[in-house]
């Protein structure tokens, strides 16, 4: 434990030191020092308005990520399991995959207005594309041994049972659990981008959220507050990163041997 703390404390301490030195060189009008930001951040923690902004962002990111699992994950499994569906959808997916999803923001704003929906949806689309592609690929690259194993467990005399029931069982017992860890990995890797697009969405299309706090403080040249907002958004990203990391490890008990 002390070793782990030390390993974390050293780089953090070094970064704060570099920050302090830069702040001294640039002066507080350009770069507030770590102490000023820390003080402001702690005052934010007791500030109901700031907490509301924080929870607004957290809810948007959380809902977006949840949505990015709820639909793309099953869809990715279905594409992996069904050649026909894959033939239909994968050209569309791979054509649109390289497009930066943040470009959808103005379109979503026009279509859905200024409420929560476009922000949540933008996060969901950003993360969901990753989840979809990774899930599909991990089904397609599944060790065929597992398919044989599943097939060998199918009782004789039930071959006639409905094909869709059989496919459902395959997805539920084999494909789904096999693909879940990679889906969690893709959420982990996309969590930074998720917060980034959320910042974009909140920076002009709303009066609530950490993105708004940052942009607002920037307009007022309230640099400590701006940094508090940035810190809070960073923590939000780190939170979802660790959450996905935890899920990933729990989903692969003792390693996927």
């Amino acid at each position: 434990m002390p070793r782990r703390i030390l390993r974390l404390a050293l780089p953090v301490g070094f970064s704060i030191l570099m920050w302090q030195i830069s702040a001294l060189l640039l002066g507080p009008r350009l770069l507030p020092g770590p102490l000023a930001v820390a003080l402001d951040f702690f005052s934010c923690l007791g500030d109901r308005a700031f907490l509301k902004d924080f929870s607004a962002s957290a809810l948007r990111a959380g809902a977006g990520i949840a949505l990015a699992l709820a639909i793309p994950f099953p869809l990715g499994l279905a594409m992996g399991a069904s050649r026909r569906l894959d033939a239909l959808l994968s050209p569309i997916v791979f054509l649109t995959y390289p497009i930066p999803k943040v470009l959808l923001l103005p379109i979503l704003l026009v279509l859905l207005g200024m409420g929560e929906a476009p922000k949540i949806l933008l996060v969901a689309v950003t993360v969901g594309y990753q989840v979809l592609v990774v899930t599909r690929d991990s089904v397609l690259s599944l060790d065929p041994r597992f398919l044989d194993s599943f097939q060998s467990l199918w009782p004789r005399g039930r071959e006639a049972h409905s094909k869709s029931f059989r496919r459902l069982m395959l997805v539920w017992h084999v494909l789904g659990p096999a693909a879940l860890p990679s889906a969690a990995t893709s959420v982990r890797l996309a969590s930074g981008t998720a917060v980034a697009v959320l910042f974009m969405a909140e920076s002009f299309a709303t009066q609530r959220g950490l993105g708004y706090v940052i942009i607002d403080a920037w307009g007022l040249m309230d640099l400590p507050r701006m940094f508090s907002g940035i810190l809070a958004m960073g923590l939000l990203g780190a939170f979802f990163y660790s959450l996905a990391n935890l899920a990933e490890r729990r989903l692969v008990p003792g390693g996927n041997a």
């Binding site: 084999v174 659990p177 989903l251 390693g255 996927n256």
Partner: peptide
């Protein structure tokens, strides 16, 4: 099966 064929996630 050869190499047991157990499901690692179960």
């Amino acid at each position: 099966m050869q190499d047991h064929g157990l499901f690692p996630w179960k």
